[in-house]
Write a protein that binds this DNA or RNA. Structure first.
Lengths: 213, 213
DNA sequence: TAGATTGTTAATCGATTAACAATC
DNA sequence: TAGATTGTTAATCGATTAACAATC
């Protein structure tokens, strides 16, 4: 599926809408207006309509959106129809905890279609072990396993010093999407997407808002 | 310290600048231009100057910014001069791993001045235990301990079902800043800041970009 | 038909970038 | 002094909101 250059601001809201729709479907709701979908996702109603209109005409005037239909369409748009395989690099305590988190999301959220299928580390004590039933491999085997398993996404939870090298290994193995937990800037080719999960930046930002307002 | 309504887009970039300056200081650098600071933090040079100019005149024409001085000023601006105490609610594997992560940030990053001083959970097996030397309390004691310890920030890593209640407990105990890892929308009074660390939204967003470009 | 709500265009708002005088 | 770089204003760009005709 292919659309014109959709802005990242739009793409970021789509999973939010999808989550709201999943919840409504579970409650047995059938229809929703842009007004109500907006309220539940914290977005203005006009913006909800505009976001969806980039991809097609999904609503009916005077009626609203069919929840089941819109869910299916949003899953297509977001590319969540078939399972996406993920590699996690850095099987420390944060990496292992995230493995459990992702597995739980997969069970709890019908539209969350990502699966961690391999962990990578350099520590010989960890290599060969399983965490949440996911096997841990030596990082040397990353290119091989990424290809064999058709892994498309990488999660990075290595120490700061190792981050750039690990990134380059992922990229040279064909990975185009990385979720980065390491508190450092990654240099990547421009066709690689990095989502930043930099908790220390977020916490430092919160510190700002503690000041007397 | 008080300035006019600074936009969140600006505030988000300040910790990024500070991190770059910390790295430069460690390397013994003394001066930096907006050009170079911008490159290292992925921001345009004009925007760097504009961001800083909201808070004062920190540079010298023809010379640039004194790294040591700018670090000190940025720490003041971000309210990172004195230690900030943090409570974490939900001592599951993700919560515990984050406790370790935050502690490590505190040791590795000179300007990261946040400290997790208490964990809260409902599980009697966890209450009384320490993780990374941080004690775990019953969630019933949260209001009491937040007040005693002057805790100002909350991190939320509870199950989805428990998230809204836990948030309300934090807010009613006086917490005004929350870092939320739970994949759900939190309803909070408008004077409470929620930073969203919603990994499942980020991963679903990355899925979008996997499509043929 | 009457009421409701979409899809879309135009207006507004805000954030980023370009340009340059001031000045170190 | 000559060259460099800031702080700031004006221009541009992009994203959100308002408004409303189309239509279910």
């Amino acid at each position: 599926m292919r659309w014109k250059k959709i802005s990242d601001a739009v793409v970021r809201r789509l999973p939010l809408y999808l989550r709201v729709l999943d919840d409504l479907a579970r409650d047995g709701e059938k229809l929703i207006s842009s007004q109500s979908l907006g309220e539940k996702s914290g977005v203005g109603p006009a913006l909800v309509r505009k976001d969806l209109a980039w991809f097609g005409e999904f609503g009916k005037q005077g009626v609203g959106y069919d929840i089941e239909y819109l869910r299916i369409e949003l899953r297509k748009i977001l590319n969540l129809e078939s399972e996406i395989k993920v590699a996690l690099v850095g099987a420390g305590s944060l990496g292992v905890a995230l493995t459990g988190y992702v597995k739980q999301r997969f069970y709890e959220d019908e539209s969350f279609n990502l699966h961690i299928v391999a962990l990578f580390d350099t520590d010989p004590d960890k290599i060969g072990k399983q965490y949440y039933e996911v096997p841990t491999y030596s990082i040397d085997r990353l290119p091989e396993i990424v290809k064999e398993e058709n892994i498309e996404v990488g999660i990075l939870t290595v120490p700061v010093k190792a981050a750039q090298d690990a990134t380059e290994l992922l990229v040279s193995s064909g990975i185009k999407s990385v979720l980065n937990f390491v508190p450092t800037k990654l240099d990547v080719p421009e066709d690689v997407h990095v989502a930043t999960a930099d908790l220390s930046l977020e916490l430092q930002r919160l510190a700002y808002y503690l000041q007397d307002e």
